[in-house]
Design a protein around this nucleic acid. Structure first.
Lengths: 186, 186
DNA sequence: TAGATTTTTTATCATTTGTTAAATTTTTTC
DNA sequence: GAAAAAATTTAACAAATGATAAAAAATCTA
């Protein structure tokens, strides 16, 4: 997905502001397995996914995946972006990826210079918030097999492209449990 | 908590912008039990809590509480605010409340007129996002009794001021289960 | 303050999910 | 395409949580 579409999809911008923003964005590619963002480290860039698939995970005793990002989505350490604090997430590329890179510092400057870009940034956070809120509620309402069915319905491509262990951990259950759920659905 | 502090706490504003915002805010009070926002309805106001305590819940077979708001916090139907869509939450006052009221429509106008207010709105969404993300992760990492201990540590006043059934549902377990967990902690 | 109502706890049994280990299937590599 | 490695499924048992009902405690109300 092309950068112009990605930016528009977040919030429409006047041509001039959009060019301003695009002037600060460059392209970069990494292979499958690359760790794009590291936990406990302040990150200075955000990325938009042109092509490929990534996951965010936290390391404790075990790894817990809590987000998948695909074409058109934004890869960001919210803690770094919002609070200048080290974030808790690692971002691993699950496929070879083509990315658009934007320095947080430059984006911040634009936020204060251009009201349209400030509102674009506001919309970005608001939309991410809605998605996160919906996941939290799904978590509170639904049991594991309902959450799996929901994922199949809303993001079938994730299930095709990602290995089961990551999906299980995203759903908040063990891989064995997910395997059992899949067996019951047959 | 006074409106000036509430606004500052979200993001500092130049005096002029802050006055502009405050000019659009009025005070209002409701008794315990009042339903401030209704599910499946587009809401036109947002509120800041001067005094009191509220909860957000969703109604299905049973009620599920998914948020508590106290002094200084913002009451908002994110779906209405962001997407002009009916939201899923009901907001019930758990205590008599004094509130500051702001029309979404007026806030939107200010977002486009004043870059400082646009950035204030951006910060608001970003901070809410961080909080929601942390709750989602806590949910994924911790079992019910760990989540209860976390709530006791981070928000002890919630446990004092809210009845157990609501807390249990907020933690994603039944009241009986929470009672059992509390018994084991003794 | 007594009785009624609401909230919280306890008990019992059922269901879901976790843990560990082994078997099977799929994918990768040479 | 055979061997090795990785991913997925199955099985058996343990632990956590749910459901229902009843008892106990706390709160409200007249």
């Amino acid at each position: 997905m092309d950068i112009s579409n990605i930016l528009d999809q977040i919030h429409l911008l006047p041509e001039q502001s959009k060019l301003e923003l695009q002037n600060n964005i460059s392209e970069i590619a990494f292979p499958k397995g690359h760790i794009l963002l590291k936990a406990n480290k302040i990150e200075f860039n955000i990325y938009f996914i042109k092509k490929g698939l990534v996951r965010a995970f936290i390391e404790r005793d075990n790894e817990v995946t809590f987000w998948f990002g695909k074409e058109g989505e934004t890869v960001i350490s919210m803690k770094s972006y919002v609070e200048d604090q080290p974030g808790y997430e690692n971002i691993e590329l699950l496929e070879d990826c083509e990315l658009y890179e934007l320095k947080t510092e430059n984006l911040r400057k634009l936020f204060h210079e251009d009201v349209h870009i400030a509102n674009w940034g506001r919309k970005f956070a608001e939309k991410e918030l809605i998605k996160t809120e919906e996941r939290l509620i799904s978590r509170q309402f639904k049991n594991a097999s309902e959450r799996y069915l929901e994922l199949m319905k809303d993001h079938p491509e994730i299930i095709k492209r990602v290995q089961l262990g990551h999906i299980a951990s995203y759903l908040g259950i063990t891989q064995v449990s997910l395997s059992r759920i899949r067996a019951e659905l047959k």
